Simulated assay, not measured.
Amino acid sequence: MKRRELREQIFQLLFRIEFHEEAEMSNQMKLFFEDIEKVVIGETDKAYIGDKFLNICTKLPEIDSIINQIAEGWKTNRMSKVDLTIIRLAVYEMKFDDEVPVNVAINEAVELAKKFGGDDSSAFVNGILAKLA
């Protein structure tokens, strides 16, 4: 899979956090990988998705704190779940993933917002992340 496809899969898995308790997430990961195996996916890609998801989960309180500091007038509990998930992924990549350049993280987040978000999502996501950059 290409990085963009991997990022999209991570977004979809990360989105489940909004609807399930922490104790349920290991089962959700299992279900996610059962679904994704219907598409041809290698073990390396599967490991990459799982590892990055778990790394983001461990940093979630710190990521949300960063978002709440930079999002004037918008706290994480008021954001749409799609936008919040995209921003969380991008903040993780910008702050904690040395393999992803900041401008790539922002661009990919905007593309995810165009694909999965509402009409104003891409502008909202871009505005929040631009403040962080």
Rank of each mutant, 00 (worst) to 15 (best):
V82K: 09
E93A: 14
A47P: 07
N68D: 10
E93C: 15
E99V: 14
I67H: 04
A90W: 01
A90G: 09
G73D: 01
I56M: 09
A71P: 12
I56F: 03
N68Y: 11
F96S: 04
E99A: 14
L54G: 04
I49K: 01
V100K: 12
Q69Y: 05
C57F: 08
F96R: 02
G50K: 13
D83V: 02
G73N: 00
K75W: 01
G73W: 00
D51E: 11
N55T: 13
I49Y: 03
A90L: 08
N68R: 09
T76S: 05
N55G: 11
E93Q: 15
D51W: 02
D45V: 07
D64M: 11
T44E: 11
E93F: 15
I63F: 10
R78Y: 10
D45G: 15
S80V: 04
T76V: 08
N55Y: 12
E62T: 13
R88C: 04
K81M: 09
A71H: 08
F53R: 04
K52H: 05
S80H: 13
R78M: 08
I56R: 01
T58W: 00
I87G: 01
E93S: 13
K81Q: 11
I86R: 00
A47L: 11
K81E: 08
I87P: 06
R88I: 03
S65H: 13
K81Y: 06
I87M: 07
W74P: 05
E62Q: 10
R78H: 09
A71S: 14
E99C: 15
I66Q: 06
V82M: 10
I56G: 00
S80K: 12
T58Q: 03
M94V: 15
Y48G: 05
D97S: 14
R78P: 02
T58H: 04
N55L: 10
E62I: 11
Q69N: 06
I49T: 07
D98T: 15
